[in-house]
């Protein structure tokens, strides 16, 4: 039976994967995960086995990631989040000049269906990984850290308009990526 410290250490790679996905900076991700490990090892009694170890550690990681985003907020806001008035080039692919869809959006099936295949999550993570770093951070702050818009704007010193533009683009790109790499392939099979 591995010791508590060994079990925590075994999950380091897993935690690092999500820290990297959210923070998009190797140093910040390493620091956040190191702090999770230290916090867990300093107070093992806090893990009362009410949940799985992984669930508990991911919960701590989310707090550490928010701390890192707050700490680096100024740097994040100045890198790629300046007000951008230009249109997303993706829109020229999805829509015709008259505002109609270039192609009828594909039928992705029943949206209420539970996802059974782990590969879907691999594709989802890969699509998120391919988003521009600034968009990915904001999108995951909303969707993974579950922060509300006001909190994100406060953390990164962003205007709501700027946040909504970036989230709009992130969702649009993610939709396109999933359509190409998952749903499109499923309907072609």
């Amino acid at each position: 039976m591995p010791t508590f410290a060994q079990q925590v250490a075994d999950l380091r790679g897993y935690l690092l994967k999500y820290a990297r996905l959210q923070l998009r900076n190797e140093t910040w991700a390493e620091d956040a995960v190191s702090e999770v490990m230290l916090a867990a090892l300093a107070k093992p009694q806090a893990f009362a086995r009410r949940s799985q170890l992984k669930t508990w550690l991911v919960g701590i990681l989310k707090h550490k990631v928010v701390d890192a985003l707050r700490l680096q907020g100024r740097e994040i806001a100045s890198a790629g989040l300046a007000a951008d008035e230009t249109e997303d080039p993706l829109e020229h692919i999805v829509f015709q000049a008259d505002g109609h869809f270039a192609e009828l959006p594909a039928d992705w099936g029943n949206p209420e269906q539970e996802i059974q295949q782990r590969q879907f999550f691999d594709i989802l993570e890969a699509c998120t990984q391919h988003l521009p770093a600034a968009q990915a951070r904001l999108f995951l702050m909303r969707e993974w850290l579950e922060l509300d818009s006001e909190e994100i704007c406060k953390t990164l010193d962003l205007t709501p308009t700027n946040l909504y533009v970036q989230l709009h683009r992130a969702r649009g790109r993610l939709r396109e990526c999933l359509d190409l790499n998952w749903y499109g392939k499923a309907s072609a099979a």
Binding site: D10, G13, Y14, L16, K54, T55, G59, E114, R118, F121
Partner: peptide
């Protein structure tokens, strides 16, 4: 579902 998956015990634990 992905949010739940990231904390699920049967999710991949290695890179």
């Amino acid at each position: 579902q992905w949010r739940n998956y990231t904390t699920a015990e049967d999710a991949e634990s290695t890179d």
